[in-house]
Nucleic acid binder design. Sequence first.
DNA 1: CTTAACAGGTCAACGGTGTTGTCATAAGGT
DNA 2: ACCTTATGACAACACCGTTGACCTGTTAAG
Lengths: 239, 239
Amino acid sequence: MSERVVPAADRRRRRPTKQGVVLSEELIVETALRLIEEHGTEALSVRRLGRALGADPSSLYRYFRHTDDLMLAVADELIGRTLRTWRPSGDWLADLRDLGLRVHAGALAHPRAAVLSSYRVTGRVYEIQAVEAILGVLRGAGFPDVEAVRIYHAYVDQALAFGALDSANTALPQPAREAEAAVWQATYARLPADTHPHIAATARHLVATMRHSSYPAALDLLLSAAAARLAEIRAAGEG
Amino acid sequence: MSERVVPAADRRRRRPTKQGVVLSEELIVETALRLIEEHGTEALSVRRLGRALGADPSSLYRYFRHTDDLMLAVADELIGRTLRTWRPSGDWLADLRDLGLRVHAGALAHPRAAVLSSYRVTGRVYEIQAVEAILGVLRGAGFPDVEAVRIYHAYVDQALAFGALDSANTALPQPAREAEAAVWQATYARLPADTHPHIAATARHLVATMRHSSYPAALDLLLSAAAARLAEIRAAGEG
DNA sequence: CTTAACAGGTCAACGGTGTTGTCATAAGGT
DNA sequence: ACCTTATGACAACACCGTTGACCTGTTAAG
């Protein structure tokens, strides 16, 4: 049973497909990303990807063992792209806020990859770079090691978790998405004040707020708590 | 074109299936939950569910218009179960902390269902109860409406997002889970200090911290930021 | 007690999916 | 120029959600 997938390094024979395309891991990953962007999550299937590439679907199994493998490769590329656009300024709070929003935006742009990668540790280069960078920002700001690690963990997981959450939501089929939006208007905004006083009192704000991601708000809350903690630490350090 | 789905209230004719099972919305939802728990997310399909119930798959379309409708019903049942175990004490901070941990624990107890339900708005009874209760706690504590809604949104999404994240991770196949745990020991803990100073300096803490959920830490950060905000609001109110 | 309406079950089919066993052939080292 | 084999193509498999047509037992009305 010879392996179906050949390691990228051993590839020599660049034979074109019937339609004249020369496949490669990079080309496949890029095309997958483009497909998701242009036609949404549900547009990404092995068969469609094959069609978009001008190749038989089964050819892709020469490059990835499962769709899962493909998605992880896509995710890795995504991390790399996000990290490359980040320009830390030296202001730890602003930098972490900026990076958080970038990670979240990157996740939204590629829902399927984001959901898959959110709960996995890859141990690959870009991930390691990100860990080192974030820890550097926190320790540079003056957080002691234990605190830096604790906040790093909460910060990263929150960015990934919200990224996945909001991704999954935007990846819903169109009718389901519209139905969700309608629920706040049609159901919550119409509950009577005598049975549901708190919802009724805030209905206007609920309808306006719930249609957007709560990640920016959650991020600001987390970071402001971290800043408060840092102030405490500094005060204690001077005593 | 007569509607395929008849509202639950109008159901009269309880005709058993060939295999002698009397279907109902409740029975279907319970069976779906059980299926997900026992055999994982991928085990839940209309066809398998039909088989597990002892009914033709197409029968389910007499109760739910799409799979999506079914998933919303499952999600709401989960919310209901969690909410029923919560006993608010009147201390807003403690109550929200307690509820958050319960939601998270509930998600971990039903890993596969939690992932599916985390990003949906059901608009069903239990969800409405939860929204009303949480908004009540926040407004009762003294948050003005806009602020209460903003914090409600971040708080709820955080609980659901971390629930889904940690669920997805625990739901990984055993070998994959072990491989993940090993990455911190095998990869991160061995990075040299000259190329990755921050990781090297905190490696001990990383290995210890990353194996647990960061949700409790993230929840505490969010709530402490909310408490700080409330203090500000109260101070301004007295001025 | 009969009967007609129809809720609610079944069946078959459609077009989609991921994946694999097998075959064909052109690329590339010798 | 030849042989190996990497790599593409094809066909098939087993699944998926969903729908239209059909059939039948339950139930409410007469």
